[in-house]
């Protein structure tokens, strides 16, 4: 794999984040190249979600740089980063509970299709929006549940909707935070297939605890331990890496 030779689409340099006196992200450098599927693994509390919060604009870095296609995005609000083509999902399901499934996905398509804050156009007559919403709902297999309020969906369905909201806006860099967490084996398989499909023409950065999924999907893996990336390599070499085994994989990989 010659991924490392390609230009990075997302670059983190010397990234740091402290909460009070606790430094959670302690100087992360990472280059995600265009089109790759990049997994981030690491023990609980390593700072993986915090890293996503920094990249997606949910949190402001204490120091360091984040570049998307070469442009600095650190400190920008979430909506600005989203509009530049980076979209993220959340570890804890984060949807619009009182809106129907259809409305959830439709809202997530609106900005990218250029409808912005229009308060004069009938949303039912926006054919591009309707088409895109149907497409996404079919993709995440919730088309038959489109009239259900999102808040009453099953856990698995809500996780699928979470991914639907993330991919609806045509972003070409996707950040998925533990998309398979808490899922049954069958559900996990379906979500992995979905992720594989939606990330085909995109760049994917994914936090995942399920090693099966990681080794299945990822082109490269970064290992985050105590706010630092201790290794970044292909799945095969990560598996073989002694430091990683000691720090994280432990008996699981043995």
């Amino acid at each position: 794999m010659s991924a490392t030779a390609k230009t990075p689409i997302l670059e983190l340099a010397g990234l740091r984040k402290s909460f009070g006196r606790m430094e959670i992200i302690r100087g992360v450098d990472l280059a995600v190249v265009q089109g790759e599927r990049h997994a981030i693994i690491g023990p609980n509390g390593a700072g993986k979600s915090t890293l996503f919060h920094l990249v997606s604009g949910h949190l402001r870095p204490s120091a360091g740089a984040i570049r998307l296609r070469g442009e600095s995005i650190e400190g920008l609000p979430p909506q600005s980063i989203n509009r530049r083509g980076l979209s993220r999902s959340f570890q804890v399901t984060n949807i619009f509970p009182r809106l129907s499934v259809w409305e959830n996905v439709r809202c997530a398509t609106l900005w990218s299709l250029g409808h912005r804050y229009s308060f004069w156009r009938d949303v039912e007559r926006l054919d591009d929006v309707t088409r895109r919403t149907e497409e996404i709902l079919t993709e995440i297999d919730l088309i038959d549940r489109r009239r259900t309020p999102a808040g009453v969906l099953t856990y698995g369905e809500q996780r699928a909707l979470e991914i639907g909201l993330t991919i609806a806006g045509h972003a070409d860099v996707l950040l998925l935070d533990e998309p398979t967490a808490g899922m049954s084996h069958a559900e996990t398989e379906r979500v992995v297939a979905l992720i594989r499909k939606v990330s085909e023409k995109r760049t994917l950065l994914m936090i995942e605890h399920d090693m099966q999924v990681v080794f299945d999907l990822a082109d490269r893996i970064s290992v985050l331990v105590y706010g630092e990336i201790i290794a970044c390599d292909t799945p095969a070499r990560i598996k073989a890496n002694a430091a990683v085994q000691q720090a994280y994989l432990g008996t699981e990989a043995a």
Partner: peptide, 21 residues
């Protein structure tokens, strides 16, 4: 309208609304 629907989204979950642009 698009605005009307996004207003509902803001009512339901303002944080996530920012992450859809």
């Amino acid at each position: 309208t698009p605005f009307g629907r996004i207003a509902n989204a803001v009512r339901d979950n303002p944080q996530r609304t920012a992450f859809i642009g």
